[in-house]
Design a protein around this nucleic acid. Sequence first.
DNA 1: ACTCCACAGGAATTGAGGGGTG
DNA 2: CACCCCTCAATTCCTGTGGAGT
Length: 410
Amino acid sequence: MPMFEPDETIFADELPLRENWQPDRIQERDEELTQYKAALQPVINEAPPKNLFLYGKTGVGKTVATRYVLYHLQEDAAEYGIDLTVITQPCNSLNSSYQVAVALVNQFRSSDNQLPSTGYPQQDVFNALFDELDKVGGTVLIVLDEIDNIGDDDDLLYELPRAEANGYVDNVWPGVIGISNDFTFRDQLSPKVKSTLCEEEIRFAPYNANELQNILQRRVDLAFHDGVVDGDVVPLAAAFAAQDSGNARQGLRLLHKSGELARGRGDDRVTTAHLQEAKTWLDRDQLEEGMREMTTQVHFVLCAVAQLAVQSETPAKTQHVYETYTALAEELDANVLSERRVRDHLSELSMQGVLNVNERNTGIHGGSYYEYEISVDLAAVLDVLLDIDRLEGAAETLEQQAQRRSLLNS
DNA sequence: ACTCCACAGGAATTGAGGGGTG
DNA sequence: CACCCCTCAATTCCTGTGGAGT
């Protein structure tokens, strides 16, 4: 008997459940698509393109709609003999105008002529970008996905749309399509950028539970064999995804994981029990992933809070956390940061949802202060800390103490 | 109505570490 | 080699703040 054999009792085709799968039609986004097409019409009329700004939470179809519309735009442009180039730049992990400009230049250049990620003055990089654009010529649409990552450093967004007016380029019409997960990003932009970049705005509202159900059902029909998925699985998955701010991607992940669990067990049906389990698994996985990406010092701070939690001393005031942190860092022979910095780390942890923060004010007896406690499964936190080399010993001790006090459920 | 605690968090700056040119 | 650029964690300094107590 072979070690591996095809197992196709559950999935007919897993691809429709994957993130990068491109559907042949877009569901539940008719209004947005109409707006999108209208905004790009100038390209076909051989007029300068408008700058576009799309915003909406993750998993509401911004990227999928963009791929869909631009694919058709390129096809039609080719048919009418219009010189159109589209480049897409994901901006996650690029956190400044400078880095985005470098990445764009490198998209145009061959691999033996790449620009380094640092070293040159900013204006040199911009000029290099304009040179590349000029070489390409025609209409160039630059899609900047997750543009909110660059924060308030919007120099590039100021320069790009004005490149032609300022005479930096003379052979090309650049158009910017900015995609943002963050509703507030638009307001962070300086007024001069806002007026040009946000000429045309398309807002992608979160999907409601009904819309999610339609989208998920269609993918389930494609991905699973008929009758394998219980009738109440999709509505529940849609409800979970709706809670997660209408995030269709999350719904797809849940369904995919449910199917994998069923297949792994050799079950012939996918039930809500599988879905529940998939949710627990995914929640924890995403949480641990988030925690792992933090820096060493944040881990120290988290470890200090975990220690207080094990000693049943949470919620703890910042002051108390800082003392515990200081002792821990000294014991581990690490740099001891200033209290101000630790406050930053604590607020970062609570933004991530790892810590819970209560604002308290006892007036003249203590003024206003924050109290922190761990807002997630303590076992998950210890799991992550155990994997950090420098914290291994401390985390082991904590785990033993926690077990003795039966603070861990799993 | 006013005080005043003790911390929150903004702003400016530093310094080390990535890299560049001539 | 000297000199310059970008990045980011971290420090220093400082102003803002909400409500219990008077």
